[in-house]
Design a protein around this nucleic acid. Sequence first.
DNA 1: GGTATACGCTGTGTATACACATGGACGAGG
DNA 2: CCTCGTCCATGTGTATACACAGCGTATACC
Lengths: 226, 226
Amino acid sequence: MDQSLGNGRAMTAGERAYQWTREAILSGRIPEGAFLEEKLVCDEAGVSRTPVREAFHRLAAEKFIDLLPRRGAQVRRVTAGELFETYEMRLLLELHGFKILCDKSIDIPAGLSEHLDRMEDSERVARVRAGDRDAIAEHAKMDFFFHYSFVRATGNSILIDLYASLQPRHQRIAVSAVSLRPKRLEVIAPEHRTLLKALTDHDYDAAERTLRHHLRPDETVVSHLR
Amino acid sequence: MDQSLGNGRAMTAGERAYQWTREAILSGRIPEGAFLEEKLVCDEAGVSRTPVREAFHRLAAEKFIDLLPRRGAQVRRVTAGELFETYEMRLLLELHGFKILCDKSIDIPAGLSEHLDRMEDSERVARVRAGDRDAIAEHAKMDFFFHYSFVRATGNSILIDLYASLQPRHQRIAVSAVSLRPKRLEVIAPEHRTLLKALTDHDYDAAERTLRHHLRPDETVVSHLR
DNA sequence: GGTATACGCTGTGTATACACATGGACGAGG
DNA sequence: CCTCGTCCATGTGTATACACAGCGTATACC
């Protein structure tokens, strides 16, 4: 998911501004509700205001930020209502993807087991449990990547786009969930393994059962967002 | 400076550029595959290049156009593959919406019957059958509005956003379908009526049956896009 | 006559200057 | 002491100038 930033030559200034801002939001360096000032991004990304403004409009279309006329760009918050809606849509889209994978007996992309290994790496887990902001954000990104991998394997480009558009919201929810209840980590890991096994075996019913249990809003997180 | 559109609301230059371009694409005035030149939009919308470029980035994020580096903005085409995917996703999202409406016994918004009356207005239908480009585009927009109305009634804002993002693709498919097979009009109208009745009665099974029949790719359109 | 190279035109990529709305600070009046 | 109005700083909205890449065309050389 992380693009190589070393390829700065081929990247336009607008793209750099977009990547920097997106990353700053996903990583939580810029908190929810904060106003993103153009000049800050200009300085940090080393470009002028024009490409930054283009990036902002793109990010607004992707629901990372809200563009308030004459006020600026505000990083979106996730409300309790959106939390339920996000889980509902993830469930709908992922289960549809699972159905395609199982019905067509599509092979699961290689390397997902190793991806889970990395997610469960003891040093990484320790940092997450200690409340390390970057580690938590990274964990949330890896979580999304895992689920997104199944969706991508379906080959349905629109399904893939729709699922990808849920990432901004997923990120904040996952960060909140892991921050507030680090014990969730112990539950997430084996569920991911079960899911991977079920889909590798093209066992839709098992995958559905696991996912319905996996994508269940945590009451602690819900009440925190209210 | 602050020019207002018909509704009297103040609109920024960027918004005007966005609206003009979006409308030009949806109406088919700018055909698929054509390159959108910034200067054209500048002149037509009466703004400078800066807001036009912002509008282009937004439209690209919404899949109306592709931004090719150093080449410009190209109006997206719909491939045969995307046609199937679009129907598949519309079916998935709409049926989910129907389930919500029926399970929660949500009232269908008023005025949809009158909306269908306008769609079936004999003068309008005659223009569509005669191949009038504007009338065909308008018909496609009204068709989308009808389906979108049910989705909006669910109140799930993410579902609503996801469905809305399908409009650019739906528009092109619907325009192709009606252009190539105007006889479809006679089938569409009663199916819409049946759908409206089923949902008004909160009869999910009837609604699902109708929609599965309604959202069936037309072989003529498919082969035309290949 | 065909091909390759150079030149110029068109249009995008970026920076920057200026216009102006918004929000807060500060002071005057009640 | 509170309230309201004015002023100013900050930051967005827009226009425009300039840089430069891509493509077509024309010309020169083979």
